[in-house]
Amino acid sequence: MAIVSIPTAVASSARPLKSRRRVRMRLPAALALLPTALIVLVVYIGCMLWTVRLSFTSSTLLPKLDWVGFAQYSRLFMNDRFLVSAENILIFGTLFVSGCLILGFLLAVFIDQNVRAEGVLRTIFLYPYAMSFVVTGVAWQWFLNPGLGLQKLVRDMGFENFTFDWLVNQEMAIYTIVIAGLWHGAGLTMAILLAGLRGVDADLWKAARVDGIPTWRVYLSVVLPLLRPMVVTATVLLATGVVKLYDLVVAMTLGGPGIATEVPAKFVMDHLFERNNIALGTAAATIMLITVVVILAPWVYAKYVRPQGRPA
């Protein structure tokens, strides 16, 4: 958007002849973009509106276009499972994003110390990201299963009283999802931040050394602010992972024990496809959409709307 709007501003202030040539030059570009624009409008926006519309109906197996007002929403907010799902996504989102950023940053700093076998370590840390969430979930399910994995291993080594049953513990199960998520996502964050670290001007380090500033302080007060664009990129990537969290849960716990690890996306999928309840499923999907919009709105405003008056 921003890129397109700048030439427009220039063109309008130039002479008419020049502007016509600009239009002619931009025509192929506009044509090339047209299919994408159509897909965005029809498929994405269209489906979103359709979803919102369906959430105000009483559709069950097949879509039905009646109007029941906010009945599905009041049902939704009385539903134990949806409330638990909402709480879980909050816990997961906060811990996953912040955890990946912290862990990724520490890993990046560690690799940036000119360690030996850097290539190997980088590959090892990034490797989990190459796996699908389903594989990740199944692997961690086995690893954390009290009768098969870690707990049994440590007990077999002679520590009879060792207990690590978070996976089957209602209170703690959601944190095992966070652990698996961190294992999966920290490597990617590391790769992004490491690229940023490598871009930091060596002179800055020399200057800091001359001033006698401790290394950790340089990282925190000088390097980290310079990495802001990378941190933003990583956060956006991780945040999309939070919203669509589904396959990891299905593979690892299937929402259990009980409903302890249910998440909104699973609520939507179950109600749409297993429980013949399109209306309630779309109502939950609409709530997810609204939440994302509410979180993104201030950022979009700050980034695109507010600075428009000022020169870039």
């Binding site: 069950t60 297993e274 429980r275 309840n277 309630l280």
Partner: peptide
């Protein structure tokens, strides 16, 4: 209905 069965399932598993 699948919907009521599902709701019962949520209650039972809890």
């Amino acid at each position: 209905t699948p919907n009521f069965s599902g709701a019962m399932q949520d209650a039972v598993t809890q």
